[in-house]
Amino acid sequence: MKSVGKHRGAGRLLTGLVFLFLYLPIIVLVIFSFNSSKSRKVWSGFTFEWYKELFSDQMILNSFYITILVAVLAAVIATIAGTFAAIGFFNMKKRPRGILLAINNLPVINADIITGVSMMLLFVSARSLFRFDLGFGTLLIAHITFNIPYVILSVMPKLYQLDNNLFEAAQDLGASWFQAFSKVILPEIRPGIINGLLIAFTMSLDDFVISYFTAGSQIQTLSMTIYSMARKRISPEINALSTILFGTVLILLLVVNIREIRQEKKLKKSSGKLLNPLD
């Protein structure tokens, strides 16, 4: 889109101010991860102390491990299940597909707290029936359940773009059902699948509310540990861990983007396409 020249300055100013607003708390967090006292307001000197202590704090490391494990498992399982479900939905008649997609969207539209408490009610009601306890299993089920809709929502548009005859053409040329699927359909919808995987992973990593209601009292994700600390005082070790995570993501994004820019230059082709990692 083109803009009238005189507005550009105002646009840049607004962009700058919003970025200052978005990054101010993050800058504060990063700076105070190097603070030599436990204060989160008064600067007392530079230290790496919290980074050292972080790697000997079992509670934080353990909750970090659970967070990553749940996010990876839930994202992978949801991506596989969601892709198959999307293909199934796509081949249905319009009416049942509409109804199923509406149900599929429920966890996306619903407030997190409602998804959380409703699943908690289910687990608590079924607990005595099947003799299990709220814990890693229920946490994983909850994460898979809220991840699958995002996978379906990102795979579906790719299926609509697909040429209907492609699958039959492959079969006519002697491919088995499985070959036609894995050699023809899968490569075509791969961007949607990868996109879905990334969204699912991010959603799991960032979730607090649904985990809080479904994880029970035995295990904690990182968000839950932070929440229980926030009532008293958050240890600067958490600042250190977040700084490491944030730095890692920042570096990854920079590497990916620099590579893309180089490739673009090679191709000497610039397009106005939106190229963000989640699109």
Partner: peptide, 24 residues
């Protein structure tokens, strides 16, 4: 592209922690 990335980047920092930072 850079600006959109910068808008999404904060989401990678735990949101409880970012809210907590506002307390300081």
């Amino acid at each position: 592209k850079i600006f959109i990335m910068l808008i999404m980047l904060p989401m990678w920092m735990n949101f409880l922690l970012r809210t907590y930072a506002w307390m300081s």
